[in-house]
Design a protein around this nucleic acid. Structure first.
Lengths: 243, 243
DNA sequence: GCTTGTGAAACGTTTCACAGCA
DNA sequence: TGCTGTGAAACGTTTCACAAGC
């Protein structure tokens, strides 16, 4: 059974607050899980400012969401806050990290050390977030053996070592930064080697078995969306201007 | 009125409880607009293979969607296909481009020529998609004056020229690749200078006036989502294994 | 006062099912 | 037969409104 995308199967991630009801599984909306990352980012900013607690309204205002939305989202995962007081910033950071699985460190590898790939190897934004890039690969002989990224850096290895490294280092995730025509074949190899998730920067839809998760980042697509929304707003303005 | 995110505004952000006005008819779901970009990408791949027509089922299968979804999405924008035959590939490419607004070329500028910024300046994926990066900025004196990207390349300019360039070149979009603490201030300057849309790579939520569109790409967030989905699948497997 | 957590209602999106057409 | 376009049903998500607690 093959599919694309990243659906969460029905399961019960939260310890049920009502022990009397065993059957009904509360499904967590996928958008709510996405917002969890937003909450985490904002909470870490608050902690830097030494805020001890935060209300759903504060958090919502900072992120452009309603207070009700924030409360609902958090409630999917249990009881977080205290009425009259709000949410404890540090406790909530710990709990969201635990939910997302980033309270431990995930080992990732990078495939394709082109411009984007090397930029990601130098990116500091992963540090302290629960991710570590443990290996990088390319098929360009001129790049193999060179060391890239924040010191001490990572050595670029030849692609034929891919399977070996995935197994030896028990790598769970891959960041795929290769040209579009090469992406599917490399995704197949990564899956066969035992990778559990792929973040794909190539502008193609990957076909991947159900037991592997895929996320995709397509820059051109993001600019297209921006263009559409700008046009839509301009059309609306013109319509209001005209009548 | 300020907000975050990229919603296409209805007549009113907070609609009045009186439904007396018929208001906006045939509202297009935002997810459908996102999929339009996917269709476009797939259609261009099909055209390269000299496919003349494609059915909603073919397109859906290639993208992991149902045929009904593909038809509904396209129908929001008018009559595209022919019963019994399918959709004309070239005609549909032209129509989707026209809908997204990428049948013309958008002028974008890039702010922040760090690792990610310079990688984007070298990225070929924008070419022929309706976007052109016409200027790049950084505050690092060592970078100013250097030329980056695919030949002939783009010269890195000092940040204090930002407003001048936006006006003189009538730039509509900005790609923001600066460190998180600098992002909001630069977004404010871009908005004040007349920019209509921002694609933000900094891991902060920008506060932006309603008439400007924002899209955000947060790499750490994407890896977090991947981690969550991998964990969820593993939990499900374990539960099924155990009983 | 202020806050959370939560059923229920409102709203948005996807899937279904089939009429109509080539 | 094979396909599109589309109302209507099914499903998913957000907002509302308020009881309960600090």
């Amino acid at each position: 059974m093959y599919s694309q995308g990243m659906h969460v199967p029905d399961s019960d991630p939260k310890p049920s607050p009502e022990p009397s009801r065993p059957a009904r599984e509360s499904h967590v909306p996928i958008p709510a899980v996405r917002r969890l990352s937003l909450y985490l980012r904002e909470l870490e900013a608050l902690r830097k400012k030494d805020s001890k607690t935060v209300s759903s309204r504060q958090l919502g205002t900072a992120l452009g969401l309603t207070d009700a939305q924030v409360r609902k989202d958090l409630a999917y995962f249990g009881q977080f806050g205290r009425p009259g007081k709000g949410y404890d910033v540090s406790e909530m950071i710990a709990r969201i990290r635990s939910i997302l699985g980033t309270d431990r460190t995930w080992r990732a590898l990078l495939v394709g050390a082109g411009h984007l790939g090397t930029a990601l190897l130098s990116y500091r934004g992963f540090f302290g977030k629960g991710f570590e890039i443990v290996a990088a690969f390319d098929n360009n002989p001129a790049k193999i053996g060179t060391v890239v990224g924040v010191p001490p850096g990572i050595e670029i290895r030849p692609l034929d070592r891919l399977e070996e490294v995935v197994r030896d280092l028990r790598v769970q995730m891959a960041i795929l930064c290769v040209p579009a025509p090469a992406a599917q074949e490399l995704a197949d190899r990564l899956v066969a080697a035992g990778i559990k998730g792929i973040l794909n920067f190539a502008p193609v839809t990957l076909t991947i078995p159900d037991h592997v998760s895929v996320g995709s980042v397509d820059l051109a697509q993001r600019l297209e969306q921006l263009a559409f929304h700008i046009s839509a707003k301009q059309l609306l303005d013109d319509a209001q201007q005209g009548g």
